Simulated assay, not measured.
Amino acid sequence: MTAAQADLQTPHTELPEAPRIERPAVADGAALWRLAKDSGTLDVNSSYSYLLWCRDFAATSVVARGAGGEPVGFVTGYVRPDRPRTLLVWQVAVDAAHRGRGLAARMLDALAERVAAEHGLTSLETTITPGNTASERLFASFAARHGAGVEREVLFAGEQFPDGPHDAEVLHRIGPVAL
């Protein structure tokens, strides 16, 4: 079943409340770690790193909260120290029950708009492993929505990773963005 088919099976009157998108708090760190782990595609960092991320990079990250306030998605990122008008998006995750509804795109747009207002964002970067079609589509559609071009180049070759086989990480540089 495709995401579009799944969306069509739920009558509009029964759609759950749209998740709220806001800055993460330290208390969200464990949930972000679980979302990353449950994604099945993300490199899962230590639980400690998600706690630190929610503390130190909350201004450049977002969490989507379900009706009960629980995290159902997140985007983590940071402003590059040597390029203070560039947001690097580290990870994007959406709980399986909330996929296929455009939540990842909404979170990405909300984060980019906030960072643009606070830092004068002109470009966005992310890395995507070859074959990750969902991420490629997410960032290509972001670029299209914001009138930006996309440049791609291998940032880290697979053999550069010391912990075993790893696909190359392809840098997607999107800009200039119109926000």
Rank of each mutant, 00 (worst) to 15 (best):
V94G: 02
A112W: 04
A105V: 04
A112N: 06
F74V: 01
E136R: 05
E136N: 04
S47W: 08
E22M: 10
D82F: 07
Y78V: 00
G29R: 13
V92H: 01
A36M: 08
S47Y: 02
L8T: 11
P19R: 01
I21K: 09
R65H: 07
A104V: 05
E136F: 03
A117C: 15
F142V: 07
V62W: 02
N132R: 10
V79S: 01
T126E: 14
Q9D: 03
L103E: 08
R99N: 04
V44G: 05
Q9V: 12
P81Y: 13
Q9F: 08
T127V: 14
M107V: 09
A93L: 02
I21A: 05
E125L: 10
D95N: 11
I21D: 08
R114C: 00
V75R: 04
V75E: 09
Y78A: 00
A58V: 02
L103M: 03
Y48E: 05
F142L: 13
I128Y: 07
M107L: 08
V63K: 01
A96L: 09
L124F: 14
K37D: 15
A110E: 11
N45I: 01
N45Y: 13
V79I: 06
Q5E: 10
L51A: 09
H119V: 05
P24S: 04
R101N: 10
L42H: 10
S135Q: 11
D38H: 13
L35G: 08
V44R: 09
S61A: 09
P71E: 12
F139K: 08
E118I: 06
V115N: 09
T13S: 12
H98C: 12
R83H: 12
R23I: 11
T86E: 04
V26N: 00
L87F: 00
A31D: 06
R85H: 09
L35Q: 05
E22L: 10
W90S: 01
L88N: 10
L138N: 00
L138Y: 10
D43S: 09
T86M: 01
A140Y: 01
V75D: 10
L32I: 13
A116V: 15
L108C: 04
T86A: 01
T126Q: 14
T86V: 11
